[in-house]
Design a protein around this nucleic acid. Structure first.
Lengths: 161, 161
DNA sequence: ATACACAAGTTGTATGATGCAAGTAAATTG
DNA sequence: CAATTTACTTGCATCATACAACTTGTGTAT
């Protein structure tokens, strides 16, 4: 509201500025909320299992999909494997990599986790109408695409010179 | 799309389910993007300095505002103080706490950080119209309020029995 | 085939952020 | 003034992550 001595907007539109601030706070708060302790799965591992619902794939794929360093994926997969939630199958096309797939236990755990998260989210969205939710979801997905395009964690300029 | 063998929706609406998934990925991606390395300020410290733009206040206040454990705030403030970005002033009303305020250097650093983030965000939102941005910002703020209401990190049921 | 460059994955190491539990010090209350 | 509560700090453990160096398999060029 009072923007008298602030000169840092660098030409950003009011909408952008509002997003910047609120999103920063939101991300922080969601980090804390999603922090396991009481959840049956680590956050990072949940995301990996979600990605594996699409089918078996090599770990490098997962790293690219989630904009994570490959080494991070390696470690998370090791943890998942120790817990019996994923399995590795030799890749017939490339002996260097293995195909990662979720086990039945892994799929079950992922579903359990998702159910818990959905229940909580449902509470938080209690007074949102369904169209409002869908619109918000669409905006998030749209924004997501842009963010992923900016991530470049394990990939340099994929065709954007 | 194909939801044949998935039974984990627990009654959540389609909108909620879409939000659940995309938001999880988004939060993860933004974490990585906001990870400093190339930024002049740690993410947590940036949030603290932002909160201090409202004026000087005790650290407990900051913890509540950001849904952080008080000990986390203590440490981040120590780091900020070492860098000369905040200062402590005795609290005339309570000798146990001090009033935390941003120094001129702190305000400058915060502004610099914000400018960088805004520039990047502006790129990502390049093809969003201003009304679209504002609508997204409003949704984020609305959702934010709900999330904060669910955080309860350092505060038990503030009047919600 | 042999050697060399490249790609996929793993391990060593460092950093950041965080919470919980236990401690200290000031304020409040009986 | 003793007991309790409140604000903050410190010790410790954990999670998540990246970057750099290394290992091993692929593919290609000679």
């Amino acid at each position: 509201m009072d923007r008298t001595d602030l000169a840092q907007d660098g030409g950003a539109s009011p909408g952008t500025q509002a997003i910047e601030h609120d999103l920063a706070v939101l991300v922080r708060a969601l980090e804390g909320l999603y922090r396991s302790r009481k959840y049956p799965l680590e956050r990072a591992q949940y995301l990996l299992l979600l990605a594996l619902r699409e089918g078996a794939r090599p770990s490098g794929d997962l790293a690219a999909t989630l904009a994570l360093d490959h080494s991070t994926v390696t470690r998370q997969l090791a943890a998942l494997e120790k817990g019996g939630l994923i399995a590795r199958r030799p890749n017939p096309l490339d002996g260097r990599s293995a195909l990662i797939e979720a086990t039945a236990a892994g799929r079950a755990r992922c579903a359990e986790m998702q159910a818990l998260r959905l229940r909580r989210l449902e509470e938080m969205l209690a007074d949102w109408s369904e169209p409002e939710r869908q619109r918000f979801a669409a905006d998030i997905a749209r924004f997501n695409a842009q963010v992923m395009g900016h991530s470049r964690t394990a990939r340099e300029e994929p065709g954007l010179g």
